[in-house]
């Protein structure tokens, strides 16, 4: 345990000896088992099929759930609950339906007690950054899925979190929009770099986005299987030979069905 902690010491996000189980007694089910990894100032993708515990892993880092054993650290501080130093983008949009785009994006700043003028200014900047200029006064139900997820990203970004956590954010979008949003998240990220942990079940998406890919086992309990370094220049070409090579390697090693 000591060794592990030391080995992960220099990372911004550290997951040390994490396991998580749900239920009691005979119903008890181990979801994640002995997960150790660190994330620096980089774009990390957690890749795993459905039911591999990847969303649970993200919720543990977010602090929405507590690990059964082990600890999560962000910037050296243990995570004990949800907080604005981590920005979470949910799979199911989860915008406040009674707030406009502006209202949603500025919410974090409002909660922290920032003055109206200041937060309007900052929120406007990020709304612009995610490409929603002109939609400030729209309500979420008036937006498409892709636009909702842009709002969600802006809402997390504006808080200037130490780490961004994205939980299959494009999982509910159609293929076309999904490609577009993958390009967009890279553009936004390159405009303002953050540590990003991005969860997905899509190999191609993982390779397109990640500096590194952490792949989880397919069955309960989820275990960390392999870490892939993706040394491709951005913007990446999904049809490039080196891209396809990595893709083939991961596919073979993960038994994922594409």
């Amino acid at each position: 345990m000591e060794n592990r902690t030391r080995a992960l010491k220099n990372f911004k996000v550290q997951c040390v000896g994490i396991s998580k189980s749900f239920g009691e007694g005979n119903e008890k089910k181990l979801i994640l088992d002995d997960i150790n990894f660190g994330v620096g100032d980089e774009f990390v993708v957690v890749l795993g099929p459905g039911q591999s515990g990847k969303t649970t892993l993200l919720n543990l880092i977010a602090g929405l759930e507590r690990p059964s054993t082990g600890q999560v650290f962000v910037d050296g501080e243990e995570v004990t609950g949800p907080g604005p130093d981590r920005g979470l983008v949910f799979q199911k949009y989860t915008l406040f339906p009674w707030k406009t785009v502006m209202g949603n994006v500025e919410m974090g700043l409002k909660l922290s007690g920032m003055s109206k003028k200041e937060r309007r200014e900052m929120a406007s900047y990020y709304i612009d950054l995610v490409g929603l200029k002109g939609f400030e006064n729209s309500y979420p139900h008036e937006l498409s899925g892709g636009m909702k997820q842009r709002v969600s990203i802006a809402r997390a970004y504006v808080n200037k979190p130490k780490v961004m956590l994205l939980d299959e954010p494009f999982g509910q979008l159609d293929a076309q929009t999904r490609y577009l949003m993958e390009n967009e998240i890279i553009r936004i990220w390159q405009a303002e770099k953050r540590t990003i942990i991005f969860v997905t079940n899509n190999i191609e998406e993982a390779i397109f986005l990640g500096d590194r890919i952490l792949s989880l086992d397919g069955k309960f309990p989820g275990r960390l299987k392999t870490i892939y370094d993706v040394d491709l220049d951005r913007p990446r070409d999904r049809a490039d030979t080196s891209f396809l090579k990595i893709r083939q390697r991961i596919t073979e090693e993960t038994m994922l069905i594409l």
């Binding site: 406040f96 922290s112 808080n159």
Partner: peptide, 20 residues
């Protein structure tokens, strides 16, 4: 998940009631 969202944005329990 709306409660999760407000918590992740830094809301305390009073703000949770007011805003969600």
């Amino acid at each position: 998940s709306l409660y999760h969202a407000i918590r992740m944005l830094g809301g305390n329990s009073r703000q949770e009631i007011l805003e969600v």
